[in-house]
Computed example of a mutant assay.
Amino acid sequence: MAPRQPLTRERILDAALALASTEGLDGLSMRKLAKTLGVEAMALYNHVANKTDILDGIVDRVFTGIVRADPGLPWPERVRATALGMYRALRRHPVVPMALVTDQANPTSLRALHPLDDLFGAFYEAGLDDDGVRQAFGAVQSLIYGSILLSTTGFIGDTGQAAPREQLDPYVHRLDPDKLPHFSRILPTLAAEDTESDFIRRLDVVIAGLPALK
């Protein structure tokens, strides 16, 4: 029989991320996590303080994995690279943005906060003042989190899938084109969404508009 792997914080965080990805944040508990790892719940407390510590650890790891933009790039390209890196990382683990937007976790380590600092630096280089940076950050954050929400099942479940055609079928069959001509016209296009390429296109629109915040 192969020896049991020692329990470590890294193993706990890996298992917690996998469990939360399938069960959601409410389905992540110390008891369930311990069962997944084949240990008693009390054994977890030698490595993590509580569920909040676990969620902070998960978020921290995901943010730490975001590749930083080349600081030598012009500011629009740094915003684009950083935002796209955040989008890709969070979209792979949509339970993480759910933990963030519900204030159940926050990235705290220096490495995890680097991408955010990079964004702020690019905004300042664009000539924005403090309030302009705040507005720019809000616009980019809204695009990232909104895009993930719209392309996943409420921040959990399968990632990267546009709304299935069957969700639009009731509208297709029930709408009266004479009464809602524009809605009827756009429906086929809504079903043809390409999530990442659409995100990039929308991000470029946001970036182009940032100088207006000066």
Rank of each mutant, 00 (worst) to 15 (best):
Y145M: 10
P177F: 01
P177M: 01
R78S: 11
A163P: 03
S109Q: 04
L37Y: 01
W75H: 06
T108M: 05
P97Q: 00
V67T: 14
L149S: 04
A81N: 15
L113E: 13
R91T: 13
A122C: 08
D204Y: 15
T189A: 07
A16Y: 10
L7D: 00
I156E: 13
R91E: 15
R185D: 05
R92C: 04
G24F: 09
R165G: 13
V48Y: 02
A81Y: 12
A15P: 03
L73T: 07
V67D: 08
P76C: 06
G65P: 02
V96T: 02
V96Y: 01
P170V: 02
A208T: 14
L100D: 00
I156V: 15
A18R: 15
L143Y: 04
V133T: 07
S29F: 09
G154S: 12
V59E: 01
W75V: 09
G72L: 10
T82L: 00
G85F: 09
S151Y: 05
T102G: 03
R185Y: 05
R165V: 14
N106K: 12
E40A: 04
L84G: 05
L128Y: 01
L175M: 10
G154Y: 10
D198A: 14
P188A: 05
P3K: 14
F137S: 11
A43R: 02
A18F: 13
G85Y: 12
A136F: 06
V67R: 09
V59W: 01
D131E: 13
K51G: 08
T22C: 10
P177Q: 00
V101K: 06
Q167N: 08
T8P: 00
R31M: 09
R11S: 06
F120I: 07
L55Q: 09
D117W: 12
L19W: 10
N50T: 12
F155K: 08
A41I: 01
S197H: 12
D204M: 13
P177I: 00
D53G: 06
G154A: 13
D117H: 12
A191E: 07
E77T: 06
I156P: 06
P97E: 01
V96W: 02
D117Y: 14
A191I: 03
R174Q: 11
G85A: 11
P74A: 12
G121E: 05
A136M: 06
R11M: 03
T189P: 01
P107L: 01
